[in-house]
Design a protein around this nucleic acid. Structure first.
Lengths: 197, 197, 197, 197
DNA sequence: CAGTAAACGAGACGGTACGTCCCGTCTTATG
DNA sequence: CATAAGACGGGACGTACCGTCTCGTTTACTG
């Protein structure tokens, strides 16, 4: 019966796609509270049984629906770490302001906090979101703009820290001035040296 | 008639106290999602009807139950902004590692994200937690250690940003070295001048 | 402090009257299901406590509200048993068609069926309603129109039986023809002799 | 899909049967007022949700539960209307003394009085109970024992009227002498002619 | 005219039931 | 063997009444 792996049954793909699409639709229209498995099933025409076959819980479905959406931005390559960082930070701020995943991340964080099995999902999502910062950081280290002991984690802490804090904790607007200052402060504290090629 | 406010019937106090206590208990153990009126009623022995008599909704009960959560640390007064900030930051890190509210905040953030009536609750809690940073910042500005255009919000963003990020998003341990670096970076980017009395 | 029983405090009268009036009002507007102690209290301004002080239960209040209303018709005295009986029967039929107690009696019967303490109330009400039939029957026996072995109970069974049956069991209209036939049949089976004074 | 009607899922049958059985139990022990969906659910082990899935309201459930109550006695065929009627009347009196439905009818009458959706239930039950009287009446008319203008309704009024009255209103015992007199009176007022075959 | 006991209003309380919504599990039949 | 269809047990929601229970406050008779 071995379908040799790659012919994974087209129906599975179809079902998952339909479910994710409707989940996304409900998510954007009614927030997380507006997504119920029953409703997704009703609208997508995919049986509830099937949904539970593919996702262990409502939370898992939400996570995937969001992570599909929360695709990391392309890694910029301007030639200088500063410009790369500014571009990425602006993009991140923009997503925090408007992207669907930004409204859902706290519930994922919360889930990760109390259900260890969901912590993995959180880690995946986080890694995906932060990957571009890692990439430009590595490049900067290779070019000597950044000291060798500066880790990608330091960069994300310096950038995402203040942004996330402002988005979810102080709940003030993420205006351009704030974003710019965050970039400058980060560059300052990371002791970035100008790149001379 | 007029029972003039202070003789408000002891039973009311008892009921409310019992309900709040159990709500708090459920809150810290299961987050906001773990609090249901039915469960509070069951555990507290207070009838559901009575709970609804005192709080119009689940949200209202949560707001009041949370108002006792997260007591801010005392404001240090070492004489220098740097030392004050270091003390507060270490205290905050310690609370993030162990305090009950640290496990609950994400669910509050999540709730604030989509239930407007709970946003106030989040704002209160946040203000309470960050108040000491505001106090030492104001003092530093008065003493000239800090430029007049440096707002308390800048300080909390510089300190709480990385700490919160690490606690809930990158989920790495909040070790002493990290805390120390956060303080140093913050002092650097805030352009703190030494205090000469 | 013995107020010697009969000076029962005017306030009691006032409260009871107010409660019964509103109960009656609710009863006629919303049927038995429309009467709730809370609502009666709200509308009459009489505290729930006071209501329960005077009536042991909602049922008891309803019974009294109905029995106050279901006053028996005056005993006719036409000179002949047949005419008396016809008058009483027509009056009874009229009450069955329109009086408030007619809509409530079944619930009293039901209550009497399963709560012995309410059976007494039922008996009272029944006796009050049937008293006039007893009176005219006794008179007819005294005058020799009716054999001495014909009891009032036989008369009520012959008259109220078919009427009640039609009102509550077959649920057909109590039209004049039916009422007339019931009277005739009763007179026939009671072997009424014409009265010669 | 089409499960074509007869393979309607055994579970549905099981649930409905369990619910109806317990409803019937509660009904006969506590009358219509003694039936609550919660209690039925609790005793039957069938979830409240499931009950509401099958019956849109408490009333609908009661209607169905009552439809099995009160099975009519077999129609006698002695050859004469008088003997048939006597047999049926004695059987009815016996049921009034002991049958479960006799304790429940008043609450059904009461319900029919004010809940139109339950009136149908009452009508069904009444028709079922009275059917045998209709049958023997028709036969008697066909044989000429009874005038053509004597309706089954007249017979039931003459028989069930006094019996029901005595059972629920005067609440005196339904002894043999009373039953016999009711039959005789009925035969008299119906002007029954002897049957000559 | 003061004292006192009843009746009273206000309303908190524990409790039961309502009918609805969603969860996640299950069973069965179809393609 | 993935799926559609949908029944099922369960738990929570917020509301309406029930009947009980303090508590002070009239009110009207008594001494």
């Amino acid at each position: 019966m071995d379908r040799s792996g790659d012919a994974v049954d087209v129906r599975v793909q179809r079902s998952k796609a339909a479910v994710l699409a409707k989940t996304y639709e409900l998510l954007t229209s009614g927030g997380i509270g507006g997504v119920s498995i029953d409703e997704v099933s009703r609208r997508s025409g995919v049986a509830k049984t099937t949904i539970y076959r593919h996702w262990p819980s409502r939370a898992a479905l939400l996570v995937e629906a969001c992570s599909t959406i929360g695709t990391a931005p392309p890694v910029p390559d301007t030639g200088s770490f500063g410009a790369d960082l500014a571009a990425l930070t602006e993009e991140l701020a923009e997503q925090l302001r408007s992207a669907r995943w930004a409204a859902v991340l706290p519930s994922i964080v919360d889930a990760a906090e109390r259900e260890p099995e969901l912590a993995g999902l959180h880690a995946d999502l986080h890694a995906r979101l932060m990957a571009p910062f890692g990439a430009v950081t590595e490049r900067a280290r290779a070019r000597g703009e950044l000291a060798a002991d500066r880790e990608p984690a330091d960069v994300t802490a310096a950038i995402a820290g203040p942004l996330f804090y402002r988005r979810w904790f102080s709940r003030e607007p993420l205006d351009a001035a704030f974003v710019q200052r965050v970039v400058e402060d980060a560059l300052g504290q990371l002791s970035v040296r100008p790149h001379s090629p």
